[in-house]
Design a protein around this nucleic acid. Sequence first.
DNA 1: CACGCCTCCTGTGCGC
DNA 2: TGCGCACAGGAGGCGT
Length: 267
Amino acid sequence: MPELPEVETVRRDLATIVVGKRVLGIRGAASAPLRRIRGLTFKNLRRRGKYLLATLGEFELIIHLGMSGRLLAAATIPPVPHVRLVIDLEGGVHLVFVDRRRFGRVSFVRRGDYAGSPTLARMGPEPLSAAFTKSAFGHQLRATKAPIKSLLLNQRLVAGIGNIYADEVLHRAGIHPDRRRLTPLEAGRLHRAIRSVLAAAIHHRGTSFSLHRDGLLPPGNFGRHLRVFQRAGQGCRKCGAPILKVRLARRSTYFCPKCQVRERDVM
DNA sequence: CACGCCTCCTGTGCGC
DNA sequence: TGCGCACAGGAGGCGT
């Protein structure tokens, strides 16, 4: 599930609960470095791309939810399978990391030491920040020849986009997912689409999938605003043509064959 | 270095 | 109904 809007939703839900609280203990599959978190206090809870970051003393807690990870704050440990880690906080609060597929990661490093997370170390700008400029984005898109969808997924040109929002922003921008070397016009449309789609998704608390509809978290409801993702065979909301599903970059890819043409724009 | 492919893990849903 | 297999929202690591 978790792409930028979902991770941001988790961050906002948990920040007010954990910030300022001291760690009383840690249980579960905690690495030796992670066990040093005991006794330290959460100074903040931040997000970078799809990563959650927290400063505690001289250290930084790095949490990536992977494909199936969830992070919950609760007074009692919920009776769900696949609880991997529990961080006990003062005030009777438990931070619970649940991850069915174990693709999630929790690490504890010296502040800013991202050597163990190359994607985080090389992360592109936050799409909703001023650092994400149309001109820099456009220049980078001219300089690389991979399919635009692969570039959106790899986190280096812009942070936080995954398979759902890659398809959604490409549809919004009217760009075929396999287009390469975008024109400045296309780059401009894509830049704008990235900002508007992600902002709207955050507003709706992200896209909720069955894994997350268990009553433990307020559900996201951006799902009903999706224009192409998991809508194969259904009509494009813009032109009515049936949405296609293909494999691209080893991922399911949904697009409208009429609104998103592969040919380069005529300028 | 850029790019593409394979892998990690577990559960679900589909076709036969 | 049962079985086997493809597939699932991510990113790290490797080979080319």
